[in-house]
Amino acid sequence: MTFETRGLSFGYAKDRTIFENIGFSVGKGEIFCILGPNGTGKTSLLRCLSGISMPLTGSVTIDGKDLHSLSRAEVAKRLGFMPQLHSSIFPYTALEVAVMGRSPHLGIAASPSERDYDLAWKNLELLGISSLAEKPYTRISGGERQMVLLSMLLTQQPDIMLLDEPTSHLDFGNQVRLLELLRRFSKKGFSVVFTTHFPSHAFQLSCTVALMNKGTFESVGPAETQLTEENLRRIYGVDLCVEYVSKANSRTCVPIIKNDDGRGVGAR
C-alpha cells in the first residue's frame, strides 16, 4: 500500500493559493507528521488529501489509483479523516457516533448490525472511553469528543488515517495515549498522516516529518534531522532548544521564555 501525492496545490482562486506544489508518499505502516505555524495550510492540505476538497492541481493516489477516480465509499474504506473540531446539532450518544464509522462498509439501505455496534464498543473501550458510550456527544468536552471521533475513525478501519491535530483538545495523559495508539496502529500496518503543533510528538514517534511553512513543504525527512533548533526557530519565530532526554530515550523541544537580561525565566 502506498499513499502518494504529487504537485498538489489548493486555493479558493487560481491566483490566491493556500498551498502549492506539495508532494510526498507514505508506505504501509509509516507515520508522517506535518508541522508548521498557524495558517500555513495544514488543514486545507489534509482536506485535499482526504478528497473532501478538490485541489487546483496535482493528484492524490492510493496504490497508484487517483482518489477522484474512485467512488466516495471506496475511498472511505481505505482512507479515514479525523477533523480537528467537530460538533453535532443532534445529541447522538458516543456509541451512535462511533458506529457511524461503519458507513462506507454498509450498503446504502443498510443500517449497522449488532456486530457493527460491538466493533464500535470495542473501540470505545480501546480508547478508555466506554463510560461515555451512552452520553450525548453534544454534552461532553472537546477532548472527549476528539476521542469519540477517533473511535469512529478506528471503527471505519481505513488503511490510511489522516488526523488533523488529533491532540489539540486532549489532556496530557490522553495526548500520550493517542501517540502510543498511533505507534501501535502503525506497527499493525496502518499508515498515519497527522498534523501537530508539538515538535516533541514527532520526536516521540520518531517518524518522518514535513516542515510546512508559507504554503509549501520546506523539507521532509526524519524527525531528528528536520526538527533542529535552527529550523524550529525559523519556522515559529521563537527561541527554543532541542535536547535529548536519556530517561525518555527521546529528544524533546523546550521553548525559552526570556527575561530582559536574556536569560530563561522558567522554574528551576
Binding site: 478528497g51 453535532s88 457511524m100 464509522g101 446504502i108
Partner: peptide, 27 residues
C-alpha cells in the same frame, strides 16, 4: 425509510459525511 440511517451521517456535517464515504449529491 430505506436510507434513514444515512441521515445520521448527513447531519454530522458535509465534510464528515464525505469522509465517511457518502455521495452527498446522490443522497
Amino acid at each position: 425509510m430505506l436510507i434513514r440511517w444515512r441521515i445520521n451521517i448527513l447531519s454530522m456535517g458535509e465534510d464528515e459525511a464525505q469522509a465517511l464515504g457518502i455521495d452527498l449529491k446522490r443522497i
